[in-house]
Design a binder for these strands. Structure first.
Length: 359
DNA sequence: AAGGCGGGGTG
DNA sequence: CACCCAGCCTT
């Protein structure tokens, strides 16, 4: 069998198999209870590279507190990031607000309903545009995510690297040819659901339970564990950091906002240095910045793994009784730190330490 | 075309 | 540990 053989199958058979399976097997998700494009949009952005179970509580809290495009456009950035804290890929939150403003200014507050206008909004690419159009508006558009790429690579026996644009284009055409005459939103979701629950990655598909097993080239050729082809991945680079949890005599802690770096941009952090510093080096560096140090105490080192790099963190708690006025950050109370400012999960160990200092 | 961008679940 | 997740953006 080949891609050609797969294309020869009856579209109606394929559609009936996958939609019937979806009706019986779909999981419950809060965004499946609505057609409100704003809600669908929020869910799709949160779901980018993020598992369904992780998203659900974030989604519930977000739409409860920021229920409309207008509310999203007007919210303070730090408050917005607070709702995103721990979810990762924080540019998604900033792009969400940028897009909300675009919708109000360019589209008079009316949610766009064609692919071109959607893809011109910040943070919306081909997948998200297709998802919103098919799910919220029942338009004849497809949404190609990692699940759909894997499902269709196996179904049609494609041996190419599924991350290559040419392969994505080829699969996009196959998915488009099979759009049903109705229920396209369910069609979109059924393909992703199949990938997430049956046609699993890492050579572990549950083919016996698959409603499409008779139509699957990979299954019929016993290639389902070899497809899709895995791409070589780059090794993580390791960075050494020294975290300085600086507190003043009023039990306030020093934080500053990350601006210049792409990584964790917009998030707040403790003072950090780019290498491992000894007690003496820390003291020298802080005195050079006109801090007067009253006490310095080593904290437990910790490690945080990002997808593309790794932080090896040494840390110190430092109590100062005097500090310069022109700081690139500020001292805030511990309660305020917890309630109002978003810190990356990478700093969780030291945020937890600060929490314990609350009196 | 390739790499940056978080955090967590899973085997 | 490595892989991958309802991807998008920049270079």
């Amino acid at each position: 069998m080949s891609v050609g053989d797969f294309r020869a199958i009856k579209a109606e058979l394929f559609q009936k198999r996958v939609l019937d399976w979806y009706d019986v097997s779909k999981r419950q998700m809060p965004w499946r209870e609505t057609k409100n494009p704003y809600f669908i949009w929020i869910s799709e952005i949160m779901l980018q590279q993020t598992r369904v179970e992780t998203v659900i509580p974030y989604y519930e809290r977000f739409i409860k507190n920021i229920p409309t495009i207008e509310a999203l456009a007007q919210i303070d950035e730090d408050e917005l990031l607070k709702y995103w804290e721990g979810l990762g890929y924080y540019s998604r939150a900033r792009n969400l607000q940028k897009a909300a403003k675009q919708i109000i200014e360019v589209h008079a507050g009316v949610f766009p309903r064609n692919r071109n206008e959607l893809e011109n909004l910040a943070g919306i690419g081909p997948y998200t545009a297709g998802a919103i159009l098919s799910i919220a508006f029942d338009k004849r558009e497809v949404a190609i995510d990692g699940n759909v790429l894997r499902v269709f690579a196996r179904l049609s026996g494609i041996r190419e690297d599924i991350s290559k644009p040419a392969t994505i284009k080829q699969i996009t055409h196959l998915v488009e040819e099979l759009i049903p005459s109705s229920r396209n939103g369910d069609y979109t979701q059924s393909l992703m659901e199949l990938g997430a629950t049956i046609c699993l990655p890492n050579g572990k598909p549950l083919c016996k339970q698959c409603p499409l097993k008779e139509l699957c080239v990979a299954k019929n050729e016993s290639l389902q564990e070899l497809i899709p082809l895995k791409t070589m991945k780059k090794k993580r680079t390791i960075q050494q950091k020294t975290i300085l949890v600086i507190m003043n005599e009023d039990n306030q802690v020093f934080i500053r906002k990350r601006i210049e770096d792409g990584l964790l941009k917009g998030m707040w952090e403790f003072m950090m240095m780019d290498s491992h510093l000894s007690v003496e080096e820390v003291i020298t560096s802080l005195e050079k910045q006109y801090f007067q140090i009253k006490q310095i105490l080593p904290l437990l080192p910790s490690t945080h793994i990002f997808s593309h790099l790794e932080w090896e963190m040494k840390a110190y708690k430092i109590v100062v009784n005097q500090y310069p006025k022109d700081l690139d950050g500020m001292f805030v109370s511990i309660q305020s730190l917890i309630k109002e400012y978003s810190l990356p999960t990478a700093l969780k160990a030291y945020k937890d330490y600060v929490k314990e200092q609350m009196k």
